[in-house]
Computed example of a mutant assay.
Amino acid sequence: MQLELRHLQAVCRIAEAGSLGAAARRLGVSQPALSAQLRRIERVTGGELFVRGRGGVQPTALGQFVLAKARRVLSEMEALGAEARAHAAGTPLRLGCILLVLLDGLLAETDRSMSGQEITVDLEDSVTALARMLGAGRYDAIVYGEVNDHEVPLPEGAVARTLIPKEPFCIRLSAGHPLAGLECIGLADLAGESWMTLVEDDDGGPEALVAACAKAGFVPSLRYRITDRKMHYDLIAAGRAVSLSQPTAPAVAGTVMRPLAGAPVTGRIRLAWNRSAVSAGQAELLYRAAARAYVAGVGNHAFHKDWWDAHPEVHPLVD
């Protein structure tokens, strides 16, 4: 028997999972089948690759050597596939996104910085679905958000890079609201309001809002969940709802944006890509395009521009 890529992948999955059972589940095979495969691999390599114990498996010295070589080979193969795909004529880069404020600017930036590379863009309401479709090969890269401490699990083979590590969510309310004249609003002062819930319900946002309101002493009335931007803004302008918002959201007639005291809800924006489909160069171009798109909206509201200038540690790398 000669070693093949699937054998190297199996060895890496066993090491990452820490047990044959967990590795078998990740690989979609039975544990006996994986054990038999490992024995065949060990016959080729000339010795045991893992020491089995009550706490799982640990690589032997030989196993460490094989793992280092396997990871290098698999990384090179992934890079080969991504770079070949990048050079293939007529192969579009498939980008999946949730409805982030920077999306409009991102499309313009990718057209400018990745000219000659066709990019298709689809919107999803679910971050979980977005990550799942990245793993299934439906998307080559995704741009998504996470709220507070929530982390979106990514599929194997995906690499993530944080674009914006922290942004304080603010509140959008009617320009005629009694609190509209304040420079900063306490969350407890919004206890009696009807809330526009966040469009994504699996990025940690709803839980973060409910938890923050609980600390402020009330349970929010989550009345509306509307994806249409115009209807969303019209309801707020009419005084029928308030909504959490990214601080880079544009100004809208009839509404105002105000920071929340203590920044009880924060978000971050991340870019993830499939290593076998997106080259390192393409990933860098995507990152910089998204960074420029975000920074372009920083000045939409003076309060966020002040916060941004005071927190250089959250600034992305831009040209």
Score class of each variant (00 low, 15 high):
Glu4Lys: 13
His7Ala: 11
Ala17Pro: 07
Leu27Thr: 11
Leu34Gly: 00
Ser35Gly: 02
Ala36Phe: 15
Ala36Thr: 05
Arg43Glu: 15
Thr45Cys: 10
Glu48Asn: 03
Phe50Tyr: 09
Gly53Met: 05
Gly53Ile: 01
Arg54Asn: 09
Arg54Thr: 10
Gly55Tyr: 14
Leu62Lys: 10
Val66Asp: 04
Leu67Glu: 03
Ala68Asn: 06
Ala79Lys: 15
Leu80Ala: 12
Leu93Asp: 01
Arg94Asp: 03
Arg94Phe: 05
Gly96Ser: 12
Cys97Glu: 09
Leu102Ser: 10
Asp104Thr: 06
Asp104Gly: 11
Leu106Lys: 03
Leu107Glu: 13
Ala108Thr: 09
Glu109Cys: 12
Ser113Asp: 09
Met114Asn: 06
Asp125Ile: 05
Ser126Val: 03
Arg132Ile: 05
Met133His: 14
Gly135Asp: 10
Ala136Leu: 14
Gly137Glu: 07
Asp140Gln: 08
Gly145Glu: 00
Asp149Ser: 09
Pro153Asn: 02
Leu154Glu: 00
Ala158Thr: 03
Glu167Trp: 11
Phe169Ala: 08
Arg172Asp: 04
Leu173Trp: 14
Ser174Asn: 07
Ala175Lys: 08
Ala175Thr: 06
Cys184Glu: 15
Ile185Asp: 09
Ile185Gln: 08
Leu198Met: 08
Leu198Val: 07
Val199Leu: 14
Val199Pro: 02
Glu200Arg: 07
Ala211Asp: 12
Ala212Ser: 13
Cys213Ile: 05
Phe218Gly: 12
Val219Gln: 15
Pro220Gln: 10
Ser221Ala: 13
Arg223Pro: 01
Asp228Cys: 02
Arg229Trp: 13
Met231Thr: 06
Met231Pro: 01
His232Lys: 04
Val242Leu: 05
Ser243His: 03
Gln246Trp: 12
Pro247Arg: 07
Pro247Glu: 02
Ala249Arg: 04
Ala253Pro: 08
Gly262Lys: 05
Pro264Cys: 04
Val265Cys: 08
Ile269Pro: 00
Arg270Gly: 07
Trp273Val: 00
Ser279Leu: 11
Gly281Cys: 03
Leu285Met: 12
Leu286Gly: 02
Tyr287Gln: 01
Ala289Cys: 07
Ala290Arg: 00
Ala291Pro: 01
Gly297Thr: 05
Val298Gln: 04
Gly299His: 13
His301Leu: 05
Ala302Ser: 15
Phe303Pro: 06
His304Gly: 04
Trp308His: 08
Asp309Thr: 05
His315Ser: 05
Val318Phe: 14
